[in-house]
Amino acid sequence: MAIIRDMIPAFDLFQPASVEDALALLAEHGEDAWVLAGGLDTFDWLKDRIKRPKAVVDLSGVEELTGIRDTGAGIEIGAMTPLSRVVGDPRVRADFALLREAAEHVATPQIRNQGTLGGNLSQDTRCWYYRSGWPCYRAGGNTCYASAPKAMNREHCILGRSRCVAVSPSDTAPALIALGARMVVRRAGSESIHEAQDFFIGPATDIQRMTVLRAGDLLTAVRIPEDWAGARHYYEKVRDRGSWDFALVSVAAAFRMDGDTIGDARIAVNGVAPFPVRLDSVERMVVGHAPDEALATEAGELAVAGARPLRHNDYKVPLMRNLVRRAIRSVA
């Protein structure tokens, strides 16, 4: 299934100037429409001719989707806000440094200038079988090549598999889950708000989507409440290459301390499942305890309970365990 194509086939390009117009276009074109944000995920799909949308709705002219504003109860970040702007924003820096760190770990400065927060959250999985156009479950076929007995799957999941074993690639997703963010999703005539961890769906829910977004839907903004403003945090992304690479495993954690013990915690990991994983059980276990080495070890063990590695990704289990341990240790 070698992809040896490089030229984007023809499509109709729409460049709306308002969210209303964008929603109308998405409603009109339904399944034939493709939402274009920064283009970093999109253009690979189109140049490789794996995805062949008839209509591309380019959001770059929709000014109201860009910017970071104070809502009084936190901040709201427009979905088209470039990652570099998220990184550089003083309010994000002051109160939500976990997001800043996560956003700063995305790819390269050039890509962060072009890539948007909404795009980073909505991007498709990187499974190399799927992205090479193999007719897998996710692509509408009837098999998973990545979990076949002789599959090459060092980058695939250890948790949450359901026919598909691809992982969520987003760096900002676990940080937003740890910060208790909410996603604003609009479609023509309606709006819905989703908890960050519910925004991402697994293959058990729908194998052809990574998020709740359906045809006609548009992620317009991310709201971050004050709940975790100024909280202690830990972010770490382990990748093969020290820059410009997707996470093998990443961890994002926010902590409220109560004296020497953990008062409250939210911990999420990514790169281990088809969706970013919130570690509720670990959170419950660590709250009320001092973050000593024993607790860190116990937390690490609990985090990977039930992990099922594939042929080539055993290493993700200890990697996830160790990152969770480091997260707990960080507030010791």
């Binding site: 990187r126 090479s132 290459r241």
Partner: peptide
């Protein structure tokens, strides 16, 4: 280069075949 048993090259892209960058 990651070849599967059928001789398919799976990482034919600089996204998956990593070369060092200036920072590495």
């Amino acid at each position: 280069l990651v070849y599967d048993d059928d001789g398919q090259l799976l990482n034919a892209s600089f996204m998956d075949y990593l070369i060092p960058t200036a920072t590495d």
